[in-house]
Computed example of a mutant assay.
Amino acid sequence: MILITGATGTIGSEVLRRIAARGEAVRALTRDPSRARTPPGVEVVAGDFDDPASLERAVSGVDGVFLVAPGGPSTERYDLAVLAAARSAGVRKVVKLSSIGADATDDHWHRTGEQAVRAGGMSWTLLRPSAFAGNALQWAAAVRADEPVPNMTGTAAQGVIDPRDIAEVAVEALVSAKHEGQTYTLTGPELLSFPDQIARLEAALGRTIKTVDVPLDVVREQMLASGMDGEMVESRLRGLKIIRDGGNAVLTDGVERALGRPPTDFGAWVLDHLDAFVTN
Score class of each variant (00 low, 15 high):
residue 126 L to M: 03
residue 199 A to T: 05
residue 237 L to Y: 13
residue 37 R to K: 09
residue 161 I to K: 14
residue 193 S to M: 05
residue 85 A to I: 00
residue 197 Q to E: 07
residue 239 G to N: 12
residue 106 D to M: 06
residue 110 H to T: 09
residue 20 A to W: 01
residue 135 N to F: 02
residue 102 A to C: 05
residue 11 I to C: 06
residue 163 P to A: 14
residue 164 R to E: 12
residue 63 D to V: 07
residue 81 A to T: 01
residue 264 T to E: 13
residue 231 E to G: 15
residue 271 L to D: 15
residue 136 A to R: 11
residue 140 A to C: 05
residue 182 Q to D: 08
residue 134 G to C: 05
residue 238 R to P: 08
residue 33 P to I: 04
residue 92 R to S: 01
residue 148 P to L: 07
residue 92 R to E: 06
residue 277 F to V: 13
residue 251 L to G: 13
residue 100 I to D: 12
residue 255 V to F: 11
residue 3 L to P: 14
residue 205 L to V: 09
residue 175 V to D: 07
residue 209 I to S: 10
residue 245 D to Y: 03
residue 249 A to M: 03
residue 3 L to I: 06
residue 186 L to Q: 08
residue 166 I to P: 07
residue 43 E to I: 01
residue 150 P to D: 14
residue 146 D to K: 14
residue 72 G to N: 02
residue 52 P to T: 03
residue 35 R to K: 15
residue 77 R to W: 02
residue 99 S to Y: 05
residue 25 A to I: 01
residue 80 L to I: 00
residue 42 V to C: 07
residue 95 V to L: 06
residue 122 M to V: 00
residue 158 Q to E: 10
residue 249 A to H: 02
residue 195 P to Y: 02
residue 277 F to C: 12
residue 66 F to S: 11
residue 141 A to Y: 01
residue 190 E to D: 13
residue 76 E to G: 01
residue 253 D to K: 10
residue 198 I to R: 13
residue 162 D to L: 11
residue 232 M to W: 07
residue 169 V to K: 04
residue 89 A to P: 01
residue 274 L to P: 14
residue 270 V to I: 15
residue 157 A to G: 07
residue 179 H to Y: 12
residue 259 L to M: 13
residue 106 D to Q: 10
residue 13 S to C: 01
residue 267 G to E: 12
residue 251 L to E: 14
residue 97 L to V: 02
residue 105 T to F: 11
residue 266 F to K: 11
residue 51 D to S: 10
residue 172 E to C: 10
residue 265 D to Q: 11
residue 33 P to H: 05
residue 34 S to F: 01
residue 256 E to V: 01
residue 60 S to F: 00
residue 172 E to P: 04
residue 30 T to N: 04
residue 270 V to Y: 06
residue 31 R to C: 02
residue 126 L to S: 01
residue 261 R to E: 03
residue 158 Q to K: 12
residue 159 G to D: 10
residue 161 I to C: 15
residue 264 T to R: 07
residue 15 V to A: 11
residue 114 E to V: 09
residue 85 A to Y: 00
residue 111 R to W: 07
residue 117 V to H: 00
residue 100 I to K: 04
residue 14 E to H: 06
residue 53 A to C: 05
residue 162 D to E: 13
residue 64 G to S: 12
residue 74 S to P: 06
residue 263 P to G: 13
residue 196 D to I: 04
residue 29 L to A: 10
residue 227 G to D: 15
residue 243 I to K: 04
residue 245 D to P: 06
residue 33 P to V: 02
residue 123 S to C: 09
residue 89 A to Y: 00
residue 8 T to L: 06
residue 23 G to I: 11
residue 124 W to K: 03
residue 144 R to P: 08
residue 178 K to T: 12
residue 60 S to D: 15
residue 264 T to Q: 10
residue 218 V to A: 13
residue 234 E to N: 14
residue 161 I to Y: 14
residue 57 R to F: 07
